[in-house]
Computed example of a mutant assay.
Amino acid sequence: MPAGRDIIAVADGVVRKSRWLTTNCTNSNSPTQGEVYIDHEVTRSPSTYTEKFTSAYFHLNVLSVADGATVTTGQKIGEVGWVGCSSESHLHFAVIRMNNTATDRTETLTIDAAGNDGWRNVIEPYGFDPPAGFDPWGWRAYSIDAGALSIDLWNTGQAPTTGTW
């Protein structure tokens, strides 16, 4: 992804954290990278049941939102950079499941000077359609009491192509 390209919010939500993180890396234009974390809720039927997710965006060189801001789908939240621990400009994007995981009904997400601990509950936001109904993201982590099953978060026809997965 070229440096300077707009990064947009994948869904409506509230900015949990918008920050500059200084890494120990020296192979990019700057050891400091922008990061944005946005909390999202997906209401299911019955309406009393809600799924919670955090989308995370890394290697930004411009931050366009602040902590606590409400964002809408498609709103600019920053710009891509060649910053932090990276060998070229790109976006590192993750979706973290915040409830109904392998170990907890509700999860916590720690974001500190060392990074974040969201890796435990990263999911595949395109959903997963494996041969035997097994989810590699959730299954791999279940053995260490972590992990979260992946679900398809995209509206019909809006997910990018999965190619030859």
Rank of each mutant, 00 (worst) to 15 (best):
M1D: 13
R5H: 13
R5I: 14
D6S: 10
D6P: 08
I7F: 02
I8K: 15
I8L: 13
D12S: 07
R16L: 12
R16M: 12
R16C: 06
S18Q: 05
R19N: 05
W20I: 06
W20M: 15
L21N: 12
L21P: 01
T22V: 13
S28Y: 02
S28P: 09
N29I: 01
S30N: 15
Q33M: 14
V36S: 07
V36I: 13
Y37P: 06
I38E: 04
E41R: 15
V42Y: 13
R44D: 07
S47E: 14
T48R: 12
T48F: 15
T50S: 12
K52W: 02
K52C: 02
F53L: 10
S55D: 08
H59K: 06
H59V: 06
L60H: 04
N61S: 14
T70D: 09
V71Q: 02
T73L: 14
Q75P: 08
Q75M: 12
Q75D: 11
I77R: 03
I77P: 12
W82K: 00
W82M: 07
V83A: 07
G84S: 09
E88R: 00
S89T: 03
V95I: 14
V95D: 03
I96L: 13
I96M: 11
R97N: 03
M98K: 12
A102G: 04
T103R: 14
R105H: 05
R105Q: 15
R105C: 01
E107G: 08
T110E: 11
I111C: 04
I111E: 00
G115P: 09
D117Q: 07
D129W: 00
P131Y: 09
P131Q: 09
F134Y: 08
F134L: 15
D135I: 08
Y142C: 03
D145N: 14
G147W: 09
I151P: 00
L153N: 08
W154A: 06
T156M: 05
Q158N: 13
Q158C: 05
T161M: 06
T161N: 11
T162A: 08
T162D: 07
G163L: 07
